[in-house]
């Protein structure tokens, strides 16, 4: 049963519901699966609905994505705690960074790109998704993830390099397999 007042209901529909896709997409990349993402995005949206009265204007997308992110992390802590402690081994992975050629090839290979993105630690994955898929500014990313802007910049830089090398690695492996 809805706990929204009638007036809030209209505001919620107008401000928050346009960002259901963004909410689902972030959850999908953080949890790496459609079914879990739908459950957790739903939980986050219902929570947003319940606490909508506490939202006093501002950027509704950032507000919603913040709730989605927190709900995802709580879910991960409970269901896959190993994943959160996962750290990318830069020593190993950054040996070879992708060249424009390997990236161009990657552009044709969706599966490989998804795989490469999924090998990144969640904190790097989310920052890439927010920047590249969601088109968020550094300021918005900082608001959603509650990390300082300086850290957003350095994490984004590292996340991009890691994705490059993950792609380069997978392309080398792919080449070996093909031989």
């Amino acid at each position: 049963m809805s706990e929204l007042e009638l007036a809030d209901r209209a505001r919620f529909e107008q401000l928050v519901l346009p960002h259901v896709d963004a909410a689902f997409n972030l959850a999908r990349w953080l949890l790496r699966g459609r079914a879990d993402a739908e459950d957790v995005a739903q939980e986050a949206l219902l929570r947003a609905c319940r606490f909508f009265r506490g939202f006093h204007g501002g950027d509704a997308r950032a507000w919603l994505l913040q709730i989605v992110r927190n709900t995802c992390y709580t879910w991960l802590e409970k269901n896959r705690p190993m994943e959160l402690s996962m750290e990318f081994d830069e020593e190993i992975h950054l040996q070879a960074c992708a060249t424009p050629e390997t990236l161009a090839i990657a552009g044709d290979d969706r599966e490989r790109l998804i795989l490469a993105l999924e090998t990144l630690p969640p904190r790097f994955r989310e920052i890439l998704v927010l920047r590249e898929l969601e088109g968020c500014s550094y300021k918005e990313i900082a608001a959603i993830t509650s990390i300082p802007i300086g850290t957003v910049m350095s994490s984004l830089s590292r996340a991009r390099r890691q994705l490059c090398s993950a792609l380069a690695n997978s392309s080398t492996k792919g080449a070996v397999r093909e031989v």
């Binding site: 259901v20 689902f24 997409n25 990349w29 739908e38 552009g107 969706r110 790109l113 993105l117 898929l133």
Partner: peptide, 11 residues
């Protein structure tokens, strides 16, 4: 490549 491969899925 991130944007072209349609990684963004509607809910």
């Amino acid at each position: 490549s991130l944007q072209l491969t349609q990684l963004y899925k509607p809910a």
